[in-house]
């Protein structure tokens, strides 16, 4: 399992169709590059100014080169983008949270062995291979950060928001978590203990937020609707239905 990325995008067939598609893309990128400043092929000395400044064109040029070298298949890229835009996101984590709120045995399993309990939903995989779940209570508030890069539990929360990856959050969360939380609207009393989890290795964290009061009559599905991404990072509380409707 070491090094595996089990999301079914590693198709390793380089078919004629892919090559044909690649040629089309390479042509398009070449044309774009030519329009910018330089012919698509040249053999004179040059500096890097001929690289289009527009990063979209540079990315497209790189993709077309790798396709033409038969290293990658654009359909595999499409599949990765589609997975993270449409399937792998915080709705996954919300299901975990709602189950933990409604099933005490599941909650116990989740807190004892996050990887196994999240695996019951199938929400493991790249950047979520080894999961630890930390529970927010009236006495303890947990907050997750990655100060060195932007580690984040992709299978349960999807890709991180820009603010999570930003220098201000990464720099401040460990030294002044209470100030950071206040900016997100969470004002903690002094007697609540703040635990900041800096994801420096291969363990990824999911916060189990507190279940809001007044939700006793809701179904698991209705509860999942209340759970936000930010509450599972630890920078927000889950609002009761009346509050969240405002």
């Amino acid at each position: 399992m070491a090094g595996s990325e089990p999301e079914g995008v590693g198709r390793r067939k380089f078919l004629k169709e892919a090559a044909a598609g690649a040629a089309g893309m390479a042509g398009a990128a070449g044309a774009a590059g030519a329009a910018e400043s330089a012919p698509a092929r040249h053999d004179h000395d040059h500096d890097h100014q001929v690289v289009p400044d527009d990063i979209a064109l540079r990315v497209r040029a790189l993709e077309s080169i790798l396709v033409e070298k038969e290293m990658i298949d654009p359909a595999d890229l499409d599949a990765v983008v589609d997975a993270y835009e449409n399937r792998i996101g915080p709705r996954n984590g919300a299901q975990i949270v709602a189950r933990a709120w409604t099933d005490p045995e599941y909650r116990a399993r989740l807190l004892a062995d996050g990887t196994a309990a999240i695996g019951e939903f199938g929400f493991l995989g790249a950047q979520g291979e080894h999961m630890v779940v930390v529970e927010n209570t009236a006495e303890i508030h947990n907050l997750v950060v990655c100060t060195l890069c932007s580690c984040y539990p992709w299978p349960t929360l999807g890709l991180p928001p820009v603010w999570y990856k930003s220098a201000p959050y990464r720099a401040r969360a460990v030294i002044e978590p209470r100030a950071v939380l206040r900016e997100f609207g969470v004002d903690l009393p002094d007697d609540v203990e703040v635990r900041v989890w800096d994801s420096t290795a291969e363990i990824r964290y999911l916060v189990l937020p507190e279940r809001p009061a007044g939700t006793e009559g809701l179904t698991e599905e209705q509860l999942a609707e209340l759970v936000t991404r930010d509450s599972m990072i630890g920078v927000a509380r889950v609002a009761a239905p009346r509050e969240s409707a405002q």
Binding site: G10, I55, V59, L62, E63, M71, L77, V80, V81
Partner: peptide
């Protein structure tokens, strides 16, 4: 392009 960059890393793993 952001999605393409994200996906490029993944498909280059092999």
């Amino acid at each position: 392009w952001e999605g393409r960059v994200f996906a490029l890393r993944r498909v280059l793993v092999p």
